[in-house]
């Protein structure tokens, strides 16, 4: 191979730059983007799938509001993120119930009363904040009414009358 031939061979063999075909990848990303935009949510209620907390389905169409949350799962009761009572076999432990009133869950009341007092104290110094007694309950769908009634009764005594239930939309 002569010198001229070698030069031609090198020019053919080694292209200096190449382009990736990204059009199809952009198409794919646009489809993902549209799907994610459709599922985008700014809801104040975030449900983490959990075997102890499965919400019932409903035809309700009202979006949840950002208020105090009580979570009643199969194993425990939470006020916001703090655990206040344990549940075993769909019943509260007797030590958590009041001696005189078996419908009254003392640790739940203490936590709710604390939250209510805090909200009332804030409303005294800030006119835009008002204690409305609203509470959003996330209750497991298999929970019996006997247990739910105790939670509602205790929250009512702590000043939280306006109970709202979180449900999963059938849509």
């Amino acid at each position: 191979m002569g010198r001229r031939g070698l030069k031609k061979y090198i020019e053919k063999r080694a292209p200096s730059a190449f382009k990736i075909q990204i059009t199809s990848m952009v198409d794919m990303f646009i489809i993902i983007l549209v799907f994610l935009l459709k599922s985008f949510s700014t809801s104040p209620v975030n449900i983490v799938p959990n075997e102890h907390l499965r919400l019932p389905q409903s035809t309700a169409s009202v979006d949840p509001v950002d208020v105090l949350k009580i979570i009643v799962s199969k194993s425990s009761v939470f006020v916001e993120d703090s655990k206040v009572a344990d549940i075993a076999n769909n019943e509260f432990d007797k030590s958590q119930l009041d001696v005189a009133d078996k419908e009254f869950i003392r640790p739940l009341y203490e936590e709710l009363d604390k939250k209510a007092q805090k909200a009332k104290d804030i409303s005294k110094v800030n006119d835009t904040v008002e204690f409305e007694g609203k509470v959003l309950m996330q209750v497991d769908r298999e929970m019996p009414y006997s247990l739910l009634r105790k939670v509602m009764y205790t929250s009512m005594l702590a000043g939280y009358y306006d109970v709202k239930f979180a449900v999963v939309s059938k849509d």
């Binding site: 599922s39 949510s41 306006d162 709202k164 939309s169």
Partner: peptide, 15 residues
């Protein structure tokens, strides 16, 4: 910020 479960609410005020 995606939500695959759409949560709604039902009001049930107590006395």
């Amino acid at each position: 910020s995606v939500a695959f479960i759409h949560v709604k609410m039902i009001a049930a005020p107590t006395p």
